[in-house]
C-alpha cells in the first residue's frame, strides 16, 4: 500500500509516496539519499540508525516512514548549522571519539538528545545513556570523553 507523506528533514520539506512497510531508516537512506544514517542490526539494538523526530532520539529502523508524516526529522546531516559543526561533532573529532565512523552518527544523535535532559552528566550517566548505541572500535573510552567535552562546550555556550 502506498501512502502519501510530507516530512521536514533537516529543515527541508519532502513530499512523496512510501509503502506502508518502508522503515524510516530506509526512506532516509534510499529515497532521500541521506546515507549518514546507518543500519547496523535487525533487532533495534545497535543505535547506528538514531535520528531525531521532533527533537527526540529514535532508532529510525524502528519506525515506519509513514509514521514520520508531518514530523520534523533531524539526521546527522542536519547537525551542523550554516556550515558550522555542532559542538558534539567538534568534540568527537577533538577527543578521537570515532574510528571507522559507522556508529558515530547514531552516537552523536543520542548524545545530543541526552544532553538536553542532562546537560551536566557524570561519566557513569553518559555510559548508561549509551545503552542503545554499540561501537565496536573505540571501546567507548573516547566516546565518553567526547560527550563530556561537548557537554562542557554546550554549557559554556549558554
Amino acid at each position: 500500500m502506498a501512502n502519501k507523506i510530507s516530512v521536514t528533514v533537516n529543515g527541508k520539506q519532502y513530499t512523496g509516496e512510501v509503502e506502508s512497510r518502508t522503515l524510516l531508516s530506509d526512506y532516509l537512506r534510499e529515497d532521500l539519499s541521506l546515507t549518514g544514517t546507518h543500519i547496523g542490526c535487525d533487532t533495534s539494538s545497535c543505535g547506528a540508525c538514531t535520528i531525531h523526530i521532533d527533537g527526540k532520539a529514535v532508532k529510525s529502523c524502528t519506525m515506519l516512514a509513514v509514521q514520520a508524516d508531518g514530523c520534523e526529522v533531524t539526521t546527522v546531516e542536519g547537525l551542523a548549522t550554516n556550515g558550522n559543526l555542532h559542538p558534539m561533532q567538534e568534540s568527537f573529532k577533538e577527543e578521537h571519539g570515532l574510528q571507522c565512523g559507522f556508529c558515530t552518527p547514531g552516537m552523536m544523535m543520542t548524545a545530543t538528545d541526552f544532553l538536553k535532559t542532562n546537560p551536566n552528566p557524570s561519566e557513569q550517566e553518559i555510559r548508561e545513556a549509551l545503552e542503545g548505541n554499540f561501537c565496536r572500535c573505540t571501546g567507548y573510552h573516547n566516546i565518553v570523553r567526547s560527550i563530556q567535552l561537548a557537554a562542557k562546550k554546550m554549557s559554556e555556550a549558554v
Binding site: S44, G47, K59, T62, T110, D113, A129, G132
Partner: peptide
C-alpha cells in the same frame, strides 16, 4: 526500561 531511544517511543 531499554535505552533512551526506546523510552522515547
Amino acid at each position: 526500561i531499554g535505552d533512551i531511544q526506546v523510552r522515547n517511543f
